[in-house]
Amino acid sequence: MQYESPDTLEAAAKLLASATDARILAGGTDLLVQMRAEVLSPSLVIDIKKVTETRTIKEENGGFRIGAAVTGAELKEHPKLRSVWPGLVEAANLIGSTQVQGRCTMGGNLCNGSPAADSVPALIAAGAVATVVGPNGRRDIKVEDVMLAPRKLALTKGEIIASFFLPARGAHASDAYLRFIPRTEMDIAVVGCAVSLALDASGTCTAARMSLGAVAARPLLVADAAKALIGSKIDDAALTKLEAAARAACTPIDDKRGTKEFRIDVAGVLAKRTALIALERARKK
């Protein structure tokens, strides 16, 4: 096995395109585990942590640009990010244990290609856009369009996620993420739900996005959920519509982590609970 740690993403992309079984190493919290379990045996591992742009958080056009290899712990420690995007930071901080938080990244969480990834619904709800570097240059892609199916991404050969852009937030806007796990930590989402919303001065919802994880082959952006909330005061009637929209969007499977019926039920429950947390936070801003 060959290990490379280039200084630029352009060089990394060239390397990635050069071998059929090359893998990108960011935090390694999925890759190294899969290598040890012999699920993957790449001939080339490309570490992108030496590339500055993957490791930095910066403010850009009123929003934030977060490097793909920024760790969960770094997101949490950022002075401003946590107050603007509490739901996203909370979701990323649910990955693994405290030790894993020192290594795990949102780029890796997305590119690992699991429908149950915690930070992905939060990125989708936030309206995050991924900047991708490939052999043919850079392009932007909405996070909800990156994952196609389990372990299958919309990235082409040699493409690497460089960073995520989170748009500017107005007043009275916030987000939240909840997941259902049978334990209290160290677990994987049976259902994950992220809601991001904005209110006007009167408390009426002016913008909303909801994303569900682990209830379909890929994390979902639930368009009907936005319809349920926008224009409402997020009252019981709106929440009932939201719950129904969440349940209607689910196409889960029965597996070792939960039944289809359970996932659909819980998606509705989490949708309401998450929306209420986001609402509470938005009102305080």
Partner: peptide, 29 residues
């Protein structure tokens, strides 16, 4: 009582041979 079990598929193979899906309570549980 609450979370541990061996889960088999119809193929007779164990589906949760690891601490992620074989759920022993963690301290915070």
């Amino acid at each position: 009582a609450l979370s541990e079990e061996y889960i088999y598929g119809a193929d007779g193979k164990l589906q949760n041979a690891g601490f992620l899906d074989y759920r022993i309570p963690v301290a915070s549980d």
